[in-house]
Nucleic acid binder design. Structure first.
Length: 195
DNA sequence: CGGCCGATCCACT
DNA sequence: GTGGATCGGCCGA
């Protein structure tokens, strides 16, 4: 079942990031359905979070998308070559977001192998935000699209992540964020097997 | 306008 | 573990 507006508009971005682990991220691009179970996320808590692009209420042409209502895609280019996919959460003008850092491939395996140039599905296939977008065909030009549409969306497929397998830790690559770099806003499913 | 740099990844040592 | 790839966005002049 596709996650709806009320899910994305919830106020607590940290618990929302935790709950997104185990959901299925789906894209229908180039005529191909490709999906994966989300196994790693990070919360970015808007204007008060030094690690967020919207820290201090900053608004630029790029970050304006973060101020859209929950259930919008925020995708931006990192290091000149990687598109990083985020889910905008909370209501309009509250720029919270969740970065999807890893997925476990599920549907459209052949197409994902073609996109990534890899021939083996293993734990490292899409264990990084740049790799997730590459596998799903997501590009920074998709920033701003509605996650309740038919291009990119997230399904609840009834997976319950065992609490003992859900690791909470500081976020990756945000050393610039001072004290906020220490917050445990990263959620990683340390799974043995996905049912 | 010029210059710096990033919520990364991969090949190589 | 280290360094290079690669370029849009942002900021300062």
């Amino acid at each position: 079942m596709k996650l709806d507006r009320s899910f994305y508009e919830r106020a607590d971005v940290v618990s929302l990031a935790r709950e997104l682990v185990g959901k299925e991220l789906c894209s229908f691009l180039d005529g191909q359905l490709t999906t994966g179970i989300i196994t790693e996320t990070e919360a970015y808590a808007g204007v008060t979070d030094q690690a967020s692009h919207a820290f201090g209420g900053k608004r630029t042409a790029r970050t304006e998308i973060m101020y859209a209502r929950g259930g919008t895609a925020y995708v931006y280019l990192c290091y000149g070559m990687h598109s990083l996919f985020n889910v905008v959460t909370n209501v309009k003008d509250v720029p919270h977001a969740v970065l999807i850092r890893a997925i476990h491939p599920r549907k459209g395996i052949l197409e994902m192998k073609k996109r990534t140039g890899k021939d083996q599905i293993n734990a490292t296939f899409a264990n990084g935000p740049g790799k997730v977008s590459k596998a799903l065909g997501i590009h920074f030009s998709h920033s701003g699209i509605d996650l309740l549409g038919k291009t990119i969306w997230i399904d609840d497929v009834g997976i319950k992540v065992p609490k003992a397998q859900l690791v909470e830790s500081p976020r990756i690559g945000v050393d610039y964020a001072g004290e906020d770099a220490k917050l445990h806003y990263r959620f990683l499913w340390n799974y043995q097997e996905i049912i």
